[in-house]
Amino acid sequence: MSTIVLLLITGLGLGALYFLVASGLSLIYGLMDVLNFAHGSFLTLGAFAGWEFARRFGADSWGTFLLSLLVGAAVGAIFAVLTELLLIRKLYERLIEQVLVTVGLALATVALFEGIWGQDPIYLTAPAWMGGQTNVLGASIPNDRFLYIAAAVIVLIAIVLFLKFTRFGLIIRAGVENRSMVTALGIDVRSAFTLVFAIGGAAAGIGGVLASHYNGYVSPYIGGSLLIFAFIVTVIGGLGSLSGAAIASAVVAVLQQFANYHWGIGDLVVVLLLAAVLLLRPSGLLGSKA
């Protein structure tokens, strides 16, 4: 029983990280049909920004930690907005070229991060509580997992409220469904493009700071390694569906934890799950677009 609880909660903790990356990917794809390979770089830069901030202001204090999340979110959002304005927008309606540009950006920025911060992992410190454990139904759960789950839930609620109750949110939801009809109502849908990049970048930035605590280090590669799983989660959940991304994040990560614990083949199970879902339901669990 305690093992199950442990695997479940640590799985949800991992799923929280997946969701922070996948939410942006899914929104961006849903609205713009762009598969954003540079999303991992938003995350990595956010992680480095958070670490640079934290090490200057005392990495073991809660205040610094929380502020480092904000710094990561801001840096991720700015990077994402610049990407949209300077690269993606130039290739409006050129879907493959947009994907190619994000591929180029991902390769170039990872190399740049290597140049700036080196290839080796940089270990970081966190508030002491995060290194401790809490007993839940007999299972000792690392405290940081609760934090990841809380962060993901807060981000999910924030995005849902934004989408539900603001005009921009309305435009984004409509645009995901039928972009050209939105423009035919006299709305410049491109402002919504910039906005989803900002939202996605911010979520990825937060995800980056948290992922660096999850790993215990920052490195130029943390974005890329999470990105593959985030892609898988996004596709399984249904491209463009936020709730799909949330559910798939949790399911995939928990499944991965269980498979890893019992047979050591978590990654493989995820890949097989993706293949199975795509073959049975090509549009994903909750997706409406093929």
Binding site: G104, L105, L107, A108, A111
Partner: peptide, 14 residues
């Protein structure tokens, strides 16, 4: 960083 230059070159080509 060779990959930085190649990546940038690639973006410019696209």
């Amino acid at each position: 960083e060779p990959l930085f230059i190649l990546g940038t070159l690639f973006i410019l080509v696209v």
